[in-house]
Simulated assay, not measured.
Amino acid sequence: MVDEVDLPRVSAPARRALVAAGYVRLDQLAGVDERELQKLHGMGPKALRILREALEERGLSFRT
């Protein structure tokens, strides 16, 4: 359910892409390969930057 999504403020297309891929919480993105997220339709460089910064604030990161 979209009301239960706990992600940083990214564009609507990026948010829909994440939810469709099963990512509804920021912590679920920790350890995910950033290149895989780039492949999602609607996921642009700005959204990836916002997510990367949000992860870093929590001491987490994408897989390198």
Rank of each mutant, 00 (worst) to 15 (best):
A21Y: 05
E34D: 07
M43P: 01
S11K: 14
E53M: 07
G44W: 04
E56K: 04
Q28S: 07
I50E: 14
G31R: 04
R16L: 14
E36H: 06
R49H: 15
R25S: 13
M1P: 03
A12F: 09
D33F: 00
D3I: 10
R49K: 14
G44S: 05
E53H: 03
A20H: 12
E36Y: 03
D33Y: 04
H41I: 04
L18Y: 05
E36F: 06
R63N: 13
D6H: 08
M1W: 09
L29V: 05
A12D: 13
R58T: 12
L18E: 07
A17E: 13
V5Q: 09
D3P: 03
V5M: 15
M43W: 01
A14F: 07
V10P: 07
V32L: 02
R35Q: 13
A47L: 07
V32T: 12
L48Y: 01
I50M: 05
L40N: 07
R25K: 13
E57I: 00
R58Q: 12
V24F: 14
V32H: 05
A14V: 06
R9A: 15
R63P: 01
L51Y: 04
R58N: 09
A12V: 11
V19K: 00
G22A: 13
G22K: 08
V32R: 13
V19T: 09
Y23L: 02
G22Y: 08
L29W: 02
P45D: 15
R9G: 06
A30Q: 00
F62Y: 14
R52D: 05
Q38M: 11
R58I: 09
V19G: 05
A54L: 07
S11C: 14
V19M: 11
K46Y: 11
E57A: 15
P13G: 10
Q28R: 06
P45C: 02
V24N: 06
A47C: 07
P13Q: 08
A30T: 01
D3E: 14
A47W: 00
R52I: 04
V24C: 09
P13W: 12
V5K: 12
R58G: 03
L26C: 01
A30Y: 00
R35N: 08
G44R: 04
L51E: 03
L29E: 00
L18W: 03
L37N: 04
G31C: 00
L55D: 15
S11H: 12
R35W: 03
V5E: 15
G42P: 01
L18I: 11
V2L: 08
A21L: 06
L51G: 06
R58C: 07
E4D: 12
V24Y: 08
D3F: 09
Q38I: 04
L55K: 11
A21K: 01
L37Q: 05
E57R: 10
A20G: 13
A20S: 14
P8C: 07
A20F: 12
L18M: 14
A14D: 10
R63M: 08
E36V: 02
G22I: 02
A21F: 08
I50L: 10
E36W: 01
G42D: 02
D27F: 03
Q38P: 00
T64R: 15
K39S: 10
A17G: 12
K46H: 11
R9Q: 14
R58F: 09
R49I: 06
Q38T: 10
R9T: 05
R9W: 11
G42V: 02
L7K: 11
Y23H: 05
L48V: 02
G44Q: 08
L37F: 00
R49D: 15
G42L: 03
L26K: 00
V10I: 15
L7Q: 07
L48K: 01
F62R: 14
G59R: 01
